[in-house]
Simulated assay, not measured.
Amino acid sequence: MRIIVVGASGTIGSEICKALEHHDLIRAGRNGLDVSVDNTSPDSIKAMYEKIGKVDAVVNAAGGANFASVSELTPELNERGIESKLKGQINLVLLGLDYVNDGGSFTLTTGVMMDDPIRMGASAAMANGGVKAFVKAAAIEMPRGIRINSVSPTIVEESFSRLEKYFVGFTPVPASKVATFYRKSVEGAQTGQNYEIYH
């Protein structure tokens, strides 16, 4: 399969590339190894698809949100989660439909914070929950047999020392384990799923 991995150089993205290395991978991101893309810009997403052409799957492991308490969360700070984690991922689907082959797939990323809240995580949880709802609803009307799923990881071992103060009491998992669920989404047959890797 010919697969775009957006966020390929990140902690999870690099493990996704290892899990899917037997396919023809196109590694994308802000500093993409094969093609650059800014997922907050619809024009940049369009340019990426136009450059790459037809693919069998699009996998996204990119997208961020600001960590701030609700009392400090301004509309401006909240906008990062909306533009990057929420709209950025949805736009990869909306603008990519014509570039994904019949029977292909999209795999997006949510996260544990929407189900197991943490302090300063409201903005990220909002974006994650929006992506999950979009995937579930979009799955019933995706054209040409195209599937769509999301993967919801807990904090990964590789990032735990840096973010442990936010994830007190959480059990981190290896990014390589998370990556197997992206492979399940790409190579499997399910659609409308949110694969939760919380333990």
Rank of each mutant, 00 (worst) to 15 (best):
E196S: 04
K87P: 01
E21C: 12
A124G: 15
S44C: 12
S159A: 13
G111Q: 10
N31Q: 13
G104K: 01
D24H: 13
A179Q: 00
C17V: 14
A175M: 11
E83N: 15
S69Y: 10
G7E: 11
Q190L: 14
R27W: 03
I146C: 00
R27M: 07
T40H: 06
V135M: 04
A133W: 02
A189R: 13
M120G: 02
V173H: 02
L108Y: 01
N66T: 14
S105C: 15
P143D: 08
D34G: 06
A139E: 03
V178N: 06
S9L: 04
G129P: 01
T11Q: 12
I90Y: 07
K165S: 14
L33Q: 14
S159I: 04
K46L: 13
M48T: 07
G63I: 06
A62I: 06
V168A: 09
F134D: 05
V112M: 10
P172Y: 02
V70W: 11
F170S: 11
K184D: 05
F134M: 07
N66S: 12
Y166S: 02
G13T: 00
T74E: 05
S123D: 15
R147D: 09
Y49C: 00
K136V: 12
K165A: 11
G121K: 12
R144K: 15
N194V: 06
I16S: 10
L97N: 05
K132N: 10
S185F: 03
E79K: 15
S71C: 08
T11W: 05
N78M: 15
Y166Q: 03
K18E: 15
A68P: 08
S71V: 13
A125M: 04
N60H: 11
A189K: 15
T74N: 05
N128V: 11
